[in-house]
C-alpha cells in the first residue's frame, strides 16, 4: 500500500509541477502563454458539464435535475448581471437547498 500511495503521489505531483517548477530563466513560449488565456474558463466548463451530466444520470429524479438546473441558471444570471461571485453562489445554493427542504 505504501508503494501505491507513493506512486500516486509522485505521478500527481508530476502533472501539477511539470511547468511550475521550470527555472525562472526558462520562460514558456509566448504563443503557448497566449493560447492559455482561455484555459481557466475552458477547464471549468469541462468540469461543470462532466459533473452535471454525472449528477443528472446518477440522481435520476426529474425534480432533482430541474432544481439543479434552475438553481444553476439563477446563479449564472446573477453572476452575469452583478459580476458578484459570492452573491451569485450564495443565491444559487440558497435556492437549491431552500426548495429541496420544502419538497
Amino acid at each position: 500500500m505504501i508503494s501505491i500511495i507513493l506512486g500516486m503521489a509522485l505521478v500527481t505531483f508530476f502533472t501539477r509541477a511539470l511547468f511550475i517548477m521550470l527555472p525562472e530563466r526558462h520562460s514558456l513560449p509566448k504563443k503557448m502563454i497566449e493560447a492559455m488565456t482561455f484555459a481557466p474558463q475552458v477547464v471549468l466548463t469541462a468540469i461543470v458539464v462532466s459533473t452535471v451530466s454525472d449528477l443528472a444520470k446518477n440522481k435520476g429524479s426529474l425534480e432533482y435535475i430541474l432544481l439543479m438546473f434552475g438553481s444553476m441558471l439563477l446563479a449564472m444570471s446573477l453572476s452575469y448581471k452583478t459580476k458578484n461571485l459570492s452573491l451569485s453562489v450564495i443565491a444559487g445554493l440558497a435556492c437549491f437547498f431552500g426548495i429541496q427542504a420544502l419538497i
Binding site: 482561455f38 481557466p40 474558463q41 475552458v42 471549468l44 466548463t45 469541462a46 468540469i47 461543470v48 458539464v49 459533473t51 452535471v52 449528477l55 432533482y64 439543479m68 438553481s71 444553476m72 446563479a75 449564472m76 446573477l78 453572476s79 452575469y80 459580476k83 461571485l85 451569485s88 453562489v89 444559487g92 445554493l93 437549491f96 437547498f97 429541496q100
Partner: peptide
C-alpha cells in the same frame, strides 16, 4: 445534495471570466 455546490460555483466563475466573443466560442465548443 451538497455535491451541487461545486458545479454552481464553477459555472458562476465561468460567467464572470467569459466576456469576449472568442472566449464564449471556446467555452461553448468545450
Amino acid at each position: 445534495g451538497l455535491e451541487v455546490a461545486m458545479p454552481i460555483t464553477f459555472a458562476c466563475m465561468v460567467v464572470v471570466m467569459t466576456q469576449s466573443k472568442t472566449s464564449i466560442l471556446a467555452v461553448f465548443v468545450t
